[in-house]
Amino acid sequence: MSILVIAEHNNQQLNPATLSALAAAVELGGDIDLMVAGSGCQAAIDQASQIACITKVIAADHSACEHFLAENIAPLIADNASGYTHILAAATTTAKNIMPRVAALLDVQAISDISAVISENTFKRPIYAGNLIATVQSNDAVKVITVRATAFDAVEATGGSATVETLESVNDMGISSFASEQLAESDRPELTAASIVVSGGRGMASGDNFDLLYRIADKLGAAVGASRAAVDAEFVPNDMQVGQTGKIVAPDLYIAVGISGAIQHLAGMKESKVIVAINKDEEAPIFSIADYGLVADLFTALPELESKL
């Protein structure tokens, strides 16, 4: 078996989710190569080469890889796929965008968002917003897989010295181009990597009230998340949404404030180790999965919580 993992990075730094995708690759067994495609991404290539579990870094540092456009990156991966039995990436929005395009080029059915490796061709993956877990067997020669990062413990980021092979030829397909981006800037930890997440829902009633959560988050070193209702109401931006169609988190502690607990929200956080719910409605479904429930008005509970931390 021979596995190609596609690194996610911002040209400067590897995304920790890649270390979890590598963990799934280690479970599969066999040689692991890591592809780093980007533009001005030497720092990410250097980081990649230090990962102990990989044999080789395959680097493509080229302007056509800037912004990770699927139209350009997918053929690059497919063209360099020969000899590999598995191609893996962490299930981030970047990989979700690219990997099915790779699978179609190879004429194979991709396997999305695996949460467990059963054997080299059999995997578990959540379906129906995580309400069910399917066991799926792939009969394709090459398995193109995205990995649910929260389901695998990251491999060591250092301790190795892999060789770096450089790909010179990268094509710009010329059918898509980057125009602009609005990236969230925050001094708080990244939502999917934080060990504590404090999330607010429609009950927060306004964007300004999220300050109550930010103050608690800053005392705990936590990231702040939100329900879809809070994002739709424009209290906070979309990158904070947790759930079936937002981010999947599994921190040590998840505090849900003014969130009712719809299955689509639970899909993104129910693997958290400890769940706290603060809600004024004692019948709210979130209490049925919370380890500690506090029936209270959040506008009195949050300032009190802040003062006691």
Binding site: I133, A134, T135, V136, N139, S288, Y292, L294, L305
Partner: peptide
């Protein structure tokens, strides 16, 4: 089809925990 569904199961169910009386008890438990 290229894949075969071998089965579906319910995910491990979480048990509801306890209700705490107030913020002080919550902080103590955590």
């Amino acid at each position: 089809p290229r894949t075969q569904l071998l089965g579906v199961e319910l995910p491990a169910q979480r048990q509801a925990g306890i209700k705490v009386n107030d913020v002080a008890q919550l902080v103590d438990k955590l």
